[in-house]
Design a protein around this nucleic acid. Structure first.
Lengths: 123, 123, 123, 123
DNA sequence: GTGGTCTAGACCACT
DNA sequence: GTGGTCTAGACCACC
């Protein structure tokens, strides 16, 4: 289930990154399984190989992928301990979105329920 | 409390937009109060007036500001009814961040607690 | 029934002009009746006298008002014969709006009905 | 058929917007066809690229264009459902013009005929 | 190649 | 005074 929207303002390589993150976190892509080669991926998505390469590099930088020279890229194990800076940044973004949702009329309760539902999916 | 980081990759005008959103949502800026003129804001931030204008225009488009010709820009009233598309987009972003937080080792419980604390602040 | 919206991007003086046009065409303001002085009008609308002055000058230019020095401004008689250039310009604008309405999904029939209703009001 | 009048009081970028709207609504520009790049358009019209960019951005905001990063801008599909606010605004403008035409001596009948002729063209 | 951001500075319209 | 438009030209990100 790969969703790429060329018309979206979000860069394609970021969309590829997010799709992989989503599939890894949901468990659809298992640890140590091989991901398609850059060329195959590019062909399948109908985008430029350079774009896929940039996405893979990003995923490797964020420790979602690891690469074995000559063999391709693979799904990495979940990080043992994340840097607190990363976590803090994510919480920062989270609070901004929550505040905006509340400003737009959503209630804390609705948001909590939404997260619970999300959790059961990903669990 | 205005935080602009000129070295940041994020465009300056977006940073201005986010700062204003934050201050409006937190209640630090009240409905119908006047915001600094484009020129003054630009001078204070040390950026070009066009950059500030772009931010103000964006805020007006998102209904956070309204402009009275010849008089300046003002904080708008909170939206009566948000479009469901906006809410859906926010939930989409929310779920991406929650997923990443969980992948980074945070638990649903920790996140829920975080949101509860947030809620009591903004309430 | 004077409707001025300061938050609107349309210049206030234009809004004043349109309000007068509307009231004259609908017959609420009769030929040769006196309109409020610039100062009174400005006070009542809560706008700058210069703004009202600009509107009155515009209405005089378009032959909706005539001014008697020392006595004030008055509603003019409907024009005997409009210049064909003015009429052509109005039809130009009309066709642009009709095209856009049709593009937005309205039908010719709906538009015709709308105009008929309009007509019976103004008649 | 692009008509730009640099001497006109109407901003250039608005003229560009209106020209594109006209060509899209008339069907001269088809869905998903590519429009000239900002730079090319600017060169052809003899104006600054920023001016064209502003026009394109406006057209994108009004859902006439969509942009693919790195590839250019394209004609969007006609809107599935227009917001009633947009329609109402157009009818508001329509009624103002009709009223003025009647004041200028045109009859409802003449206007209706004009619209009918218009309709058969665009059909 | 594409669009996006930013600057510096001029000029105009509205209040 | 206010915001709005436009130009010229630089630099960046994405594809």
């Amino acid at each position: 289930m790969f969703r790429i929207d060329l018309k979206n303002r979000k860069p394609i390589y970021e969309q590829v990154v997010e799709n992989f993150k989503r599939l890894i976190i949901s468990g659809d892509l298992c640890e140590n399984s091989r991901v398609p080669s850059i060329r195959d991926m590019a062909k399948e998505l109908g985008v430029n190989p350079n774009t896929v390469q940039k996405a893979y590099r990003e995923l490797e930088g964020q420790k979602y992928f690891y690469t074995v020279l000559g063999q391709g890229s693979f799904i990495a194990a979940p990080p043992e301990e994340a840097t607190s800076a990363e976590i803090a940044l994510l919480y920062e973004k989270l609070s901004a979105i929550i505040r905006e949702l509340i400003f737009r009329g959503e209630s804390k309760g609705e948001i909590q329920v939404f997260i619970n539902v999300l959790g059961s999916e990903t669990k």
